[in-house]
Structure formats: structure tokens, C-alpha cells
């Protein structure tokens, strides 16, 4: 059961890492690459805090083996902002609308929202609530998160037109 050398393509960067095949993507992102923005809230695939995008799809990185992500495109929360002082519209909207409290669910929530908006750029409120159904939050009661996603959807749509 030797370590396997894999190539992880995270946020446009390529990393070669030797990993034990039983390591999850969440563990390798956090412990090997030290990208700790991906949070582990349950390690059981229920809370969504570890959500990352794998080839554009939102997945629970705590139930994804790192070796299965070999040479696939991974987006984590660290890869969303175009520059350190310029946030992605979703991040900006989460900040502005008070959708961040303790912040532990925030990275996963934002990535789940990104996946949702990519598949459905103008979702209804109910569609947003369904789309975020895999991400638990204990602080906000979700309403401000829903508002933030609505605002970001508008912002992104306006950006595309302009």
C-alpha cells in the first residue's frame, strides 16, 4: 500500500504530491497543500463545509479520495477571488449582506452557491434554498445567505451583459 504520486490541479496551480490512497481530498488539501479554507465540519458528507468544485461540480471533499482527483480541476475557496483585495461577486455579496457570522460554513456555502449559479444563473428563492440544501449553517438562519446569493446572481448577470 505505497503512496501514490498524483497531480492535483487546484485553483489553476499544479501540485505533485505523494499521498496514501486512503486519504480524502479534504485531508490532502488541508494537511499537504495547507489550503485550510476547506473546512471539515462533520467528515460524514452531511454538512457541506468541505465542499469544493471538482471539474465544476460541487462535491464533498471529505468523501472524495484524493487519488480520484488526480489531474482533475479543483476549485477551493482560496481560488475564487481574482486578487487579494478584489473579491468574487459571491464573496462580496456574502460580506455585504451579513451572510457570514462564524464563517465556518462560509467557504463550502460559497462554493455550493457557485455551482448552483453556474447551472442556474437566475435561480428563484426556492431554487437557491434547494441548491444550498447540502450546506448546514448554525448562525445565520440562512436568510441572509439566500439574499447574498440573489444579489450575486444579479451582479454576475449584469457583469456578463456589460
Amino acid at each position: 500500500m505505497a503512496k501514490q504520486t498524483i497531480e492535483l490541479r487546484v485553483n489553476g496551480d499544479r501540485y505533485e504530491v505523494a499521498v496514501d490512497p486512503w486519504r480524502t481530498l479534504a485531508e490532502v488539501l488541508r494537511e499537504e497543500l495547507r489550503l485550510t479554507g476547506t473546512k471539515i465540519g462533520c467528515n460524514q458528507g452531511d454538512c457541506g463545509a468541505c465542499t469544493v468544485l471538482l471539474d465544476g461540480r460541487s462535491v464533498s471533499s471529505c468523501l472524495t479520495l484524493a487519488v480520484e482527483a488526480h489531474q482533475r480541476e479543483i476549485t477551493t475557496i482560496e481560488g475564487l477571488a481574482p486578487s487579494p483585495d478584489h473579491l468574487h461577486p459571491l464573496q462580496q455579496a456574502f460580506v455585504q449582506h451579513g451572510a457570514v457570522q462564524c464563517g465556518f460554513c462560509t467557504p463550502g456555502m460559497i462554493l455550493a452557491a457557485k455551482h448552483l449559479l453556474e447551472n442556474n444563473p437566475q435561480p428563484t428563492e426556492q431554487e437557491i434554498r434547494r441548491g444550498l440544501g447540502g450546506n448546514l449553517c448554525r448562525c445565520t438562519g440562512y436568510n441572509k445567505i439566500v439574499e447574498a446569493v440573489q444579489a450575486a446572481a444579479q451582479e454576475l448577470a449584469a457583469g456578463k451583459e456589460g
Partner: peptide, 23 residues
Amino acid sequence: QSIPRLDAPDKATGRAIYTDDIK
């Protein structure tokens, strides 16, 4: 006023450090 949380940008970008992130 409704002032956005000053710690929110770090939390929304994954920069905020929580205890388990420390190594």
C-alpha cells in the same frame, strides 16, 4: 448602521484561521 463584519472578507476567502488549521 448595518456595517458589514470586519472579519467577513477573511472568512469568505478562506484566509481566516481556525484552531484545526494550525500546524
